[in-house]
């Protein structure tokens, strides 16, 4: 038992050293970063953070990211919940193939989709909008959400549906009152994965935006290379991009434990 705990603590320490290093760097001045090697900032400076919060470019790109990620989660769930319900309740001709086809999309190389995506969204006059990025990210998020939700929904006996209908529930009322609360943990897990992916994705988000919807991940990349790398600034921006994610994990932590336990995932 002892040994197990020590090994676990070691793992968590190793897991967090790189993140600690980034936080550490974010509170140092550029001079200190380059001049000496310190495990803790000698003089804590908030200069890097102040620079980010006062710059409209950084602020806007943070807002852009939050907008399209939220849109993506909403679209993903709206499409995936009924879809997963259909897969879990009705076996129709070709349903297996359709399910596997959905999954293959998750395997697709993001890199090559850039050019077709660009052409497509130009044609639809959606280029450089939040909606374009949100829709494009559905390519990866809907398959995963359908898979996760289908697992959860298959775990709920069909008899529940049938009993509800016999009791005179209309479909929407059954869905809202009975079914939805039952699959809520699954929806939490699916939303978590959709949020995560959309928040961290760089390649597609980068190629579908210029200025109006430019996400924070892209702003970060631009900072590298130009006029010598500002490590402190990049580290501070990196720390800030982790915060929304950490908040989301914190809020869904119970769902996650419960959800992971219930679903076939």
């Amino acid at each position: 038992m002892r040994k197990r705990h020590i090994a676990l603590i070691c793992y968590f320490v190793i897991l967090f050293i790189p993140i600690y290093w980034m936080i550490n760097t974010s509170f140092k001045s550029d001079a200190e970063i380059l001049r000496e090697f310190t495990m803790f900032p000698k003089e804590i400076t908030l200069k890097n953070y102040v620079e980010i919060f006062t710059s409209p470019v950084w602020r806007n790109s943070f807002i852009n990211s939050i907008i399209y990620v939220t849109m993506n989660v909403v679209i993903t769930l709206i499409a995936a919940i009924p879809g997963a319900y259909a897969f879990s309740r009705w076996k129709f001709r070709g349903s297996h193939h359709l399910f596997f086809w959905l999954l293959t999309n998750r395997m697709a190389p993001g890199a090559i989709f850039i050019v077709p995506f660009t052409e497509l969204y130009y044609t639809l006059h959606l280029y450089d909008t939040h909606l374009a990025v949100a829709l494009a990210h559905c390519l990866f998020n809907i398959p995963l959400a359908v898979w996760i939700l289908e697992g959860f929904m298959s775990g709920i006996p069909k008899e529940i549906d049938e009993t509800a209908f016999i009791d005179g529930y209309s479909f929407p009322r059954f869905f809202g009152k009975i079914f939805f609360p039952l699959v809520a943990p699954g929806i939490g897990v699916a939303a978590f994965f959709a949020f995560t992916f959309s928040w961290v994705e760089l390649l597609i988000a980068k190629s579908l935006t210029i200025t109006d919807a430019k996400p924070v991940v892209v702003t970060l990349t631009v900072g590298i290379g130009a006029e010598g790398v500002k490590w402190g600034l990049l580290a501070a921006a990196g720390v800030l991009t982790i915060i929304p994610g950490a908040l989301v994990v914190y809020f869904v932590r119970n769902y996650m434990a419960k959800g992971f336990a219930l679903g076939r995932v």
């Binding site: 676990l8 968590f12 897991l15 967090f16 790189p18 993140i19 290093w21 980034m22 995560t196 928040w199 961290v200 994705e201 760089l202 924070v216 991940v217 970060l220 990349t221 590298i224 990049l234 580290a235 921006a237 990196g238 991009t241 982790i242 929304p244 994610g245 950490a246 989301v248 994990v249 914190y250 932590r253 996650m256 434990a257």
Partner: peptide, 19 residues
Amino acid sequence: SLVLLGIPLLIPYNVVGIV
């Protein structure tokens, strides 16, 4: 533990690169 494990997954890929 679950929250801690979730954190590396939520770091944007390019921030992972920067870290």
